[in-house]
Design a protein around this nucleic acid. Structure first.
Lengths: 152, 152
DNA sequence: TCGATTTCCTTAGCACTACTAACTATACTA
DNA sequence: TAGTATAGTTAGTAGTGCTAAGGAAATCGA
């Protein structure tokens, strides 16, 4: 049974503090995207293309766990804004190949670097035992971030 | 300089693995909201009201870092859906007091419990040193989630 | 090989949530 | 009390998710 009103964050059980950290820090990360003029969906699509180099609509939609029509529109709007280029897939007449423009690559790299710096600068303010604990903790937590297998 | 293509996640620097964990696990948390029929904005508004008991539009907007018109509409739609109740503020003729309905309280508590359980169940799969590292790590990381002071 | 099916993507339309600009009504203050 | 500040709303725009429906290319099976 959960009490009412709810306890201050610092007194809540550890599992809750973990998910609250994720929610709060996630908002801070989205603020970085927003200041760079990127919506979360756009940043995420850029990341997928930055890793894979080239992607078609269906792959991007699967990466982002979004339906194809949503990705069609996102790609159309981002192409309109000069962030990516669509070319017909020479190997499949139904498909499209999507690639980043140099502008988008530079923008993504800058935002990524800012996020890394935000965390890295913070880590430098901590003492060595805390940093060691963080290294161990995130190694252990990796599997928590993975979504369960989607049904076939 | 960032290389192209980008390195696999497991080989990236620790700061990046932390923000990627937040992005990935955040998505999993939003999936829980979605399965309960809650959008992220609604879950967040519910959380604010669950903690504070009663809130007006401006306070809720500030809590959620959203502009008042966005909160006006969110509250209107959530009231329409039976999640909260608006009453005129007896102390300020311009204001409105917003409170959760019992339905919304129960729904929020269930979603919160599911998120806690997701993390708690995972933590139980870890050995004791890993759990200890996680406790230390999140104590150290609390300040990273806090946004910097907003300008006056 | 030809018809049926599957796959890839798109169009159309709805829902939700963010924004700014502009407005009303109430409260405060000098 | 006149002027200003504050609380909230309305109106209009943009972005992102969805489903339904459909065209076109690829593939499969008889």
């Amino acid at each position: 049974m959960l009490s009412n009103p709810i306890t201050p964050i610092a007194e809540r059980p550890e599992p809750e503090r973990i998910y609250l950290f994720v929610q709060h820090f996630g908002r801070r990360l989205r603020d970085i995207d927003a200041r760079a003029g990127l919506t979360p969906a756009r940043f995420s699509a850029l990341a997928s293309l930055r890793i894979h180099g080239s992607r078609n609509i269906g792959e991007l939609a699967a990466d982002e766990r979004v339906r194809p029509p949503s990705m069609t529109r996102l790609v159309r709007d981002m192409a309109r804004d000069g962030l990516l280029v669509r070319t017909p897939d020479p190997a499949d007449g139904r498909g499209v190949l999507i690639e980043l423009t140099p502008t988008a690559t530079a923008l993504f790299d800058a935002v990524r670097a800012e996020k890394i710096a935000l965390v890295a600068d913070f880590l430098r303010t901590l003492d060595e035992p805390a940093r060691a604990a963080i290294t161990l903790a995130f190694a252990a937590l990796d599997d928590l971030a993975e979504p369960p297998e989607p049904p076939p």
